[in-house]
Structure formats: C-alpha cells, structure tokens
Amino acid sequence: MPKRPEKSSIIHACIIKQQLEIEDFEKEISALKKEIYSHNETPSQGDSSAAERTEVLQRYESEVGFLKEELEILQGIDPNSEISQVAPGAVVVTNQRTFFISVSIEQVEVNGQDIFGLSTKAPIFQSLRGKKVGDKFDFNGIHYEIQDVY
C-alpha cells in the first residue's frame, strides 16, 4: 500500500480547490453584473435576454454561497483527530479509491494519490457510515473493501 497522505495535506488541497472554484464563480458574477447593469445596452437587446442573465446571476450567487458554506466545513475539520470508523473528517482508503468524508469535491491529488471528497449527503456515504478497516460493502454494483480509515 502506498504511503498514506497526511490528512492536513488533503484538507489543504481541498481548501485550495474550493477557493479556486469560488474565485471562478465570483469572476463570472462580476462579468454578468457588468453586462446586466451596463448603461450601454443597445435597443436590440430584449428584456428576455436581461431576465435570463439576471436568473443566471442569481444561480451563480446561490452557488457561491453554497461553496462558501462547504469551505467553512473544510476549514473546521481537525487534521489531528483520531478516527477509526467512517465519519465526517475521515479519510477512507478502499480497494477502489480513497475518499475524504467532508464535502463534495470531485478529486484532488495529494502526494501522487487521487482523493475524492465525499459529502455526507452522497448516497454512497450511507453505505460507508460507521464502517471500519476490513469491512466490505457494495454500491452501484461495485465491491469495496475498506483498507484504512484515519
């Protein structure tokens, strides 16, 4: 088994990824606001186009709020906590992939290993919750065996 990445490194990588995603959305929001509130709109631009942009702006602002809440969750995880069963804040190494029980983050690479951020709201978490090293479970037709939890 490869050397397990430190939880602090995993948290750090997830925080950076989350911050970058927030920054990307904030740039889009800024650009949309300039477009919507520009005083140089031409007569050919109809009200429906402005309404659509406003709707997109509201969705983006809502997404940024959600991402910021998830960032706070990440920042609140104690990298030194001792965890022996699957729970929020745990790193779970299986025969298929490594999960970090926190928030939904597609994937981060830490020390050459792919780590998948997994929200406690994700369906697979219900199959993982409370499991320990050596436990097995199936999810969506895939067999998992837990090799390490920390």
Rank of each mutant, 00 (worst) to 15 (best):
E106Y: 12
D47V: 03
Y37M: 03
G65E: 06
A122T: 00
F99M: 06
V92R: 06
R59N: 13
S9Y: 12
I115G: 00
S44G: 04
D78M: 02
E72H: 13
I124K: 07
A122Q: 06
I73V: 14
K132T: 09
E28R: 14
I22C: 05
I11F: 11
E55D: 07
P123H: 11
A87E: 15
P88C: 02
K33H: 08
K7Q: 05
P2K: 15
I124Q: 06
I15G: 02
I83D: 00
A87F: 13
A50N: 05
L74E: 01
I29C: 02
I36N: 04
A50D: 08
V93N: 05
A13I: 05
L128S: 04
F116Y: 14
S8I: 14
F25H: 03
E109N: 09
H39V: 06
A13Y: 05
G117V: 01
F99D: 01
F66N: 03
E69H: 15
G46L: 07
D114K: 15
G117P: 01
Q147L: 13
S30M: 07
L71R: 05
A13S: 09
V64Y: 06
S38M: 12
A90M: 07
H143M: 00
I16R: 12
P123S: 10
A90K: 06
M1A: 10
Q107G: 00
E106K: 14
I73P: 06
F66E: 05
P5D: 08
I142D: 04
Q18E: 10
V108K: 03
A122W: 07
V91K: 07
V110E: 01
S84V: 10
K68I: 00
I124W: 12
E26Y: 08
E109K: 11
I29T: 02
T98W: 14
I146Q: 09
K132M: 08
N80C: 00
E82W: 04
L118E: 05
L74T: 02
F99E: 01
E35F: 14
S104M: 07
G89F: 09
D24H: 14
C14E: 09
E26G: 00
I29Q: 02
D24L: 11
P2L: 13
I146D: 02
I115N: 03
A51L: 08
A87K: 15
F25P: 00
E6F: 09
E70D: 14
S49G: 10
K33Y: 11
P5H: 13
I29A: 01
K68G: 00
D114M: 07
V91S: 04
S48E: 09
F137I: 02
Q58L: 09
R97D: 07
K132E: 08
E61I: 03
P79A: 04
